[in-house]
Design a protein around this nucleic acid. Sequence first.
DNA 1: TGTGTAAGTAAGTGACTACTTGCATCTGCG
DNA 2: CGCAGATGCAAGTAGTCACTTACTTACACA
Lengths: 208, 208
Amino acid sequence: MNHRDAILAAAAGVFAKHGFRGSTTRRIADVAGVNEITLFRQFGSKQALIHEAMRHLTQSAVFALLPDTPVDPERELTDWSESFIQHLRLQSSIIRKTMGEIEERPDMCEFATDVPRRASSDLCHYLTALKRQGMATEEFDPRTAAAMLMGSIFADAMGRDMMPDVFPQPETKAAHKYTQLLLQALGVENGSGKATSKQTKRSKQLSA
Amino acid sequence: MNHRDAILAAAAGVFAKHGFRGSTTRRIADVAGVNEITLFRQFGSKQALIHEAMRHLTQSAVFALLPDTPVDPERELTDWSESFIQHLRLQSSIIRKTMGEIEERPDMCEFATDVPRRASSDLCHYLTALKRQGMATEEFDPRTAAAMLMGSIFADAMGRDMMPDVFPQPETKAAHKYTQLLLQALGVENGSGKATSKQTKRSKQLSA
DNA sequence: TGTGTAAGTAAGTGACTACTTGCATCTGCG
DNA sequence: CGCAGATGCAAGTAGTCACTTACTTACACA
């Protein structure tokens, strides 16, 4: 393994465990199996090293895509939700650290918000398409709906370790349950992907 | 103002801004307008002081209660949601710090989880009562529904500063919108508090 | 063989950290 | 007044931190 990559991986790991202040150059060097001085020669400073490690990490993040035109909403959204929650769970330590240090290191913000921004944008487009194609019988604001699904998944991924009794069981079906409940709110029928007409339609408008 | 209270308030404020490692005794003493030595004489150690400050803070936390028996779900849940989101927004800094440091200081966990645990319990009871009284026409799992509403509110309170374009606008109506969308999922009608019967009823069971 | 580059070793710098000690000062109370 | 307890001040301790300097070693390549 390349020295540089070993250092970047070590920096990411140590940061995930101890945050910026707790990520001493000594600790990172030990984990990387490298002399402390090498960090400074390669990256200049601790801050530059951690920046580079975060950039490296966010670039390699990838998860399921939503189709441009919905076909089977329950399946497509469930797949997406499960992929999203899995990503958040894997990165939960590093996300918590970054969030906690945003006020002191706002420069980290772009790394932290990159994934959720893209996810939100994708999800919003998908929900809008769902609406446009008449697959949802209920009126709704796509942004609110997207924020709800993502928020539920985010809170689950961040909080389940600390308070498992607050979240639906089992852990493996949580993303599916959130997705189902959201589709229920939007009035999207299961399986077929086609919304069956309902005799009563709610009049209240939720969109802004 | 009592010296002791001034120190506790200063400790909470500094912790909210800088986290545990960044909360130097020097800084806390400066903010409290007190000699650094006084901290150690009053509380023994930095850790004991911060513990005490957190305990003090969580004890004084209070927000809207849900009635035992639902009467006007939309109004009652909206009031509760708005009170909850307001609490989370006021404490967002301190919550982010505590979450980020949980792995290093698990003893803080009880302070961080106290409020959301109580909130979740209250909300679950309320939703269960809603169901029992036939005010919801759709089938649902109360815990999933509660986790969704709380998760949406939590994510909004934590993330809106960092990425305002991801959440529904305006900020002041977000809690209301989440509440409305959830009630739409549960099949609870607006205003009257009584669910009107629907001609089509969804068969899919969501509860575990 | 010579040379450049990346890496290691040793030592140290100045700043900051939690926390301690010894002594002076102030305040409230009998 | 006299005393006790809380507070302040000055100084110091032992440790850690990011980062530097000066020098040595190992290796690739021409």
